[in-house]
């Protein structure tokens, strides 16, 4: 590995022997830290790691959204005690101009999910969400919370009711309690997307689509068709939209 590295450096130096004065200094700097470059090579199989400063921060919500209960270690989780302070920091940092929220979640704690969704929805800075893979169950409110939402063509969202088997410690699981919980989720989604409450409830209680449950799976375009998500797209679409929202906000601040 080291040989490859030094050969390459040598070649680069020999093909361009006459350069500006700062060139040798640059080479010297490279030679001062070959170790970190070799490490990079070993771990990623590539030489150059670009260094950049970003005015856009990226929040990834993966696996289970973990809230009031610590889940066993086989669950990959995103914890609300990590996400919430990060959102506060992003909102306060003057250098950060927008947030991209990447979702690939199977759902999780209702109140943690709603808390994250409310935080995103009430942020002053432009937010764009992108659902990749899955944005199921309580991932729905988080997905629609952003100013503008994207879903990858292959990503899916499962809309289904909060189950009776949910775990509530010390609270009798009355029908009313579940119903109230459900209302909080439905109201949030209806408020932050273009879907109507009737349509959402209909999708939620549809039979014959899910093997173990009632509900609906919306894949990519379907989620857009029902008005739940704004657009089908990928990373470049989401970034483009976020940049245009940032520009718009700057213009508004000047006026």
């Amino acid at each position: 590995m080291e040989e490859i590295f030094t050969n390459k450096a040598h070649n680069a130096a020999s093909t361009q022997p006459k350069e500006k004065k700062d060139k040798p200094r640059k080479n010297k700097n490279d030679n001062n830290k070959p170790d970190s470059k070799i490490e990079t090579l070993q771990q990623l199989g590539q030489m150059e790691i670009p260094n950049s400063e970003s005015n856009i921060h990226c929040l990834t919500i993966i696996g289970q959204v973990e809230g009031h209960i610590v889940l066993p270690p086989q669950n990959k989780t995103t914890k609300y005690e990590h996400i919430i302070p990060q959102l506060v920091a992003i909102e306060q940092d003057k250098k950060i101009e927008g947030v991209l929220i990447i979702l690939n979640t199977v759902g999780g704690d209702v109140e943690a999910g709603l808390a994250i969704a409310e935080m995103i929805a009430t942020m002053d800075k432009p937010t764009v969400s992108l659902i990749l893979g899955g944005g199921h169950s309580i991932g729905g409110p988080i997905g629609v919370a952003a100013d503008y939402s994207f879903i990858a063509p292959t990503a899916s969202m499962t809309i289904h009711p909060i189950r009776l088997s949910g775990l509530v410690i010390g609270v009798p699981q009355t029908y009313e309690y579940l119903d109230k919980m459900q209302d909080r989720v439905v109201k949030f989604i209806v408020k932050h997307s273009k879907i109507s409450e009737e349509k959402y409830r209909e999708l939620m209680s549809r039979t014959g689509e899910l093997a173990r449950d009632i509900g609906t799976i919306l894949v990519g375009e379907d989620a857009v068709k029902y008005g739940l998500i704004d657009e089908v797209g990928g990373l470049s679409d989401a970034l483009k939209k976020l940049k245009s929202l940032i520009e718009e906000r700057k213009r508004q601040n000047i006026e």
């Binding site: 086989q74 199921h136 499962t158």
Partner: peptide, 21 residues
């Protein structure tokens, strides 16, 4: 309360007891 597509018996299974430190 959990709202997830993963069955609760999978979420709370004790099959994997090697707690990563």
């Amino acid at each position: 309360m959990l709202h997830t597509i993963v069955p609760l018996e999978v979420v709370f299974s004790n099959k994997y007891d090697d707690l990563p430190n």
